[in-house]
Simulated scan of single mutants.
Amino acid sequence: MAFGRLERPRPSTPMSDINMTPLIDVMLVLLVIFMVTAPLMSSSLRLDLPKADGAKPLEAAAVLAVGLDREGRLFIGEQRSSLDELRQKAKEAAEKNPATEVHLRADSTAPYGKVAELIGLLQQAGLTRIGFVAEAKAP
């Protein structure tokens, strides 16, 4: 009987190189996703304003732009705001110039109760010149 030594296969050596292909693929997919979604995340307030015939607004010396979107969120200019912030800015504007005009841009599907609440808040702050911004009807 021959007793031989049993050969065990040598364990494979660990791979010391990193495969870059999956990393590059993931980074390119993320780049495409960010390129597509970046224009959608712009800070401009997009509203579906009601259509109406009327006179063009006159240029006012002092204007406070207030926006209300379809979910009832409030904006001062392009910045999202709360009722307390609007109340404070309206009081400051009324103290500075009582003839300050408010340009109220409300989405055509905005809740009527929110619009009425905004008008009451602005009048309590001392601003009585409130104008509704609308788009001109197509001919």
Rank of each mutant, 00 (worst) to 15 (best):
G72E: 00
S43W: 04
A106H: 02
D48E: 12
P111A: 03
Q124F: 05
R129Q: 06
T128K: 11
L122D: 01
K96S: 13
I119G: 00
V63E: 03
L45I: 15
V102K: 03
Y112M: 11
R105W: 01
S82A: 06
L49K: 08
A94R: 02
A38F: 06
A106M: 07
M27I: 10
A125N: 07
L31M: 14
P22A: 09
A136P: 12
A60S: 04
A106G: 05
G120V: 14
P111N: 13
E85G: 03
D17T: 11
R8E: 13
S12L: 14
R70Q: 09
R80E: 15
A60F: 08
R129N: 12
M27E: 09
L28F: 03
A60Q: 09
Q123A: 05
P9S: 12
A60M: 08
L31D: 02
L74V: 10
T13N: 03
L28R: 09
S12Y: 00
A60L: 07
F75I: 03
E135P: 08
D17A: 14
A52P: 00
A52H: 06
E117G: 06
T128V: 11
G54R: 04
K51W: 04
T21L: 09
R129Y: 02
A106C: 10
A65Y: 02
I76E: 07
L23T: 06
Q79T: 14
R5E: 12
A93K: 01
S82F: 03
A110V: 09
V26C: 08
M20H: 06
I130C: 09
M15K: 06
P22L: 09
G67Y: 00
D107N: 11
G54K: 02
T13E: 03
K51S: 10
M35A: 15
L83T: 14
R5W: 04
G113F: 01
A60D: 08
L64H: 00
E117D: 14
R105K: 06
V32F: 11
V26F: 07
R10F: 11
G131S: 15
M1Y: 10
Q88W: 06
S44I: 09
T100L: 04
L47K: 02
V29E: 03
A90D: 02
R129V: 05
G120T: 15
T128A: 02
N97S: 13
P39F: 08
A2F: 07
Q79F: 08
E85N: 15
L122W: 01
E101L: 01
E7L: 14
R10A: 15
G131T: 04
P139Y: 03
D84H: 13
L121F: 12
A93D: 00
G113N: 07
A55C: 01
S16G: 10
L30V: 13
G4C: 04
E92F: 06
D25M: 14
S43M: 11
I18L: 13
A52M: 05
D17I: 15
D69G: 10
M20Q: 07
G131Y: 12
P50V: 10
A99P: 05
A65R: 05
V36C: 06
T109H: 04
T100G: 05
A110D: 01
V36N: 05
A52F: 08
E7Q: 04
L40E: 03
K51M: 13
K51D: 00
Q124V: 12
A138L: 07
G54C: 07
D48P: 01
P50F: 01
M1T: 13
I76K: 01
I76L: 14
P111Q: 09
S16F: 02
E101R: 10
D69S: 09
L58M: 13
T21V: 12
V66F: 00
N19P: 11
